[in-house]
């Protein structure tokens, strides 16, 4: 007896299950918009014009954590956006799956990189 598995498995790269992603794209957008307005207000008030002033902006725990949350929201938001672009323009499933995997890895790397920059783990 032969079971053809593909008739029963879920398609890994289609445009299904979009509602959760759609909602998270909006949620992450709101987080980034609030951070952006706050950061611009901070920059306008502090006007950092030296290395010491610039570094001091990112010295506080709140600044570091909120900036990190911004980058995490950005990565999630960009992941959904790039996925939408691939679904629209890349019709070959294998290629689409590879592109989505590559974007996932790259964005995860950016989040770790942002944490390293913010908490000073750089050389």
């Amino acid at each position: 007896m032969t079971i053809v598995a593909r008739h029963y498995t879920k398609d890994p790269v289609g445009s299904h299950s979009g509602l959760g992603n759609w909602l998270m794209q909006r949620a992450t957008a709101v987080v980034m918009a609030l951070y952006t307005l706050g950061a611009l207000a901070c920059l306008a008030m502090q006007r950092p014009d030296s290395y010491a002033a610039w570094k001091a902006l990112f010295a506080g725990g709140f600044a570091r954590i909120s900036t990190f949350i911004f980058f995490a929201a950005l990565a999630w938001h960009a992941w959904i956006g790039m996925r939408d672009i691939f679904i629209d323009y890349v019709q070959v499933y294998g290629v689409r799956l590879m592109l989505q995997a590559a974007v996932t890895v790259v964005l995860a790397g950016y989040v770790v990189w942002a944490a390293a920059v913010l908490w000073g783990l750089q050389p």
Partner: peptide, 15 residues
């Protein structure tokens, strides 16, 4: 999305 590594790199260097 494509410019994100450049922006992160500039932030890293500036700090």
């Amino acid at each position: 999305f494509l410019l994100l590594p450049v922006l992160l790199w500039v932030l890293q260097r500036s700090l």
